[in-house]
Every structure is written in structure tokens, then in C-alpha cells.
Simulated assay, not measured.
Amino acid sequence: MSEKQSELEQRLMVGLHGTPELKHHEKVQHLGQFRERIIRLLTKNQVEDNHVYPEIEEALKDPRAIRLLLNGDLAYRYRDKYIKIARKHSKPYTVVNDPSLKGNAGLVVVADHAVDVDKIEVK
């Protein structure tokens, strides 16, 4: 009987609090993405630099890359140069506006599966 009670308690908890999310802390740091799906990442400060990081264009050329995500906290003038590169390489982009995201990520190039790139940060 305790097994059924445990299952009932689990269902109640899901009903009250929603489905538990895997690696939530990791996702709030990386614009809602799992770390292992990221090919390249720029910080907010790097996106605000005047120059374009060539590493991002290279990442968008990667056949595993499926999308560019940009932090919605950044002004359009900073995001626009990367949007143009995404369009040039026929990659969709999304501007992420989510106040629950707490990381310093300004831009990520992601795959739809784990790619486990060792160094995602551009120096």
C-alpha cells in the first residue's frame, strides 16, 4: 500500500508544482539550454563588443548547429549583427526573453542533441 501512496504523493506533487525539470540550474545559466548541446557561447559583454566574433560564424557553419539563441536583455543593435550572420547561414534564431534566466550568457549556438564541446566559451 505504501507504494501506491508514494505514487499518489508523486502525482499530487507534480500537480501542485509541475513536472520536475532536469538540470534546471544549468539551463538558467545557458539561455534555457543544456550545457552539452552548446557549440559556442558569448557572454553579454562579448555580444556588446563592437566587433563580431568569428568563432560564432564558424559555429553557425557547423552542421550540428540548429539555432542561434540571443539574450533579450541585450539591445537590438548588439543582437542584430549576429542575426544577420544566422540568416546568412540559413540558421533560425530566437531572442530569449525570460526573467528567470540568471546566467551571463548573451548568445549561444546550439545543437538538437548532445555535442559535448569541451570549451564552449569564446576567449
Rank of each mutant, 00 (worst) to 15 (best):
M1N: 10
S2M: 11
S2N: 13
S2V: 10
E3Q: 09
K4P: 00
K4M: 08
S6T: 02
L8F: 04
E9Y: 13
R11D: 07
R11E: 14
R11M: 12
L12W: 05
L12Y: 12
L12K: 13
L12I: 15
M13P: 02
M13S: 14
G15Q: 15
H17M: 14
H17G: 07
H17L: 15
H17E: 15
G18H: 07
G18M: 11
T19C: 05
L22C: 05
L22G: 03
K23Y: 15
K23A: 15
K23C: 11
H24W: 11
H24A: 14
H24R: 13
H25T: 12
E26D: 14
K27N: 06
V28W: 07
Q29M: 15
Q29G: 11
H30S: 04
L31C: 12
L31F: 08
L31Y: 08
L31P: 09
G32Q: 10
G32E: 07
R35A: 10
E36P: 00
E36M: 07
E36T: 11
R37S: 09
I38D: 05
I38E: 07
I38V: 12
I39L: 15
I39G: 01
R40C: 02
R40M: 02
R40Q: 06
L41N: 01
T43H: 05
K44E: 13
V47S: 01
V47H: 04
D49F: 06
D49T: 03
N50D: 08
N50Y: 09
H51R: 13
H51V: 12
V52L: 13
P54R: 02
L60C: 04
K61N: 07
K61T: 05
I66M: 11
R67W: 00
L69S: 04
L69M: 13
L70D: 11
L74K: 03
L74G: 04
A75I: 03
Y76T: 15
Y76I: 09
Y76H: 10
R77E: 13
Y78K: 06
R79M: 15
R79H: 06
D80N: 03
D80S: 08
D80W: 02
D80Q: 12
K81W: 03
Y82A: 05
I83P: 00
K84F: 01
I85P: 00
I85Q: 01
A86R: 06
H89E: 12
S90H: 15
K91D: 02
K91I: 03
P92G: 12
Y93N: 00
Y93C: 01
T94C: 03
T94G: 00
V95P: 03
V95F: 02
V95W: 04
V95R: 06
N97Q: 11
N97R: 15
N97V: 11
N97Y: 12
N97I: 09
P99C: 07
S100D: 14
L101V: 05
K102P: 01
K102M: 09
G103R: 10
G103C: 08
G103I: 07
N104I: 02
N104G: 01
N104E: 08
N104S: 09
A105H: 00
A105C: 05
G106H: 07
G106E: 08
L107Y: 10
L107T: 09
V108A: 13
V108M: 03
V108D: 05
V110N: 01
V110S: 01
A111N: 00
D112Y: 01
A114R: 13
A114L: 02
A114H: 08
D116E: 09
V117N: 10
V117E: 10
V117Q: 11
V117F: 14
D118A: 15
E121M: 15
E121P: 00
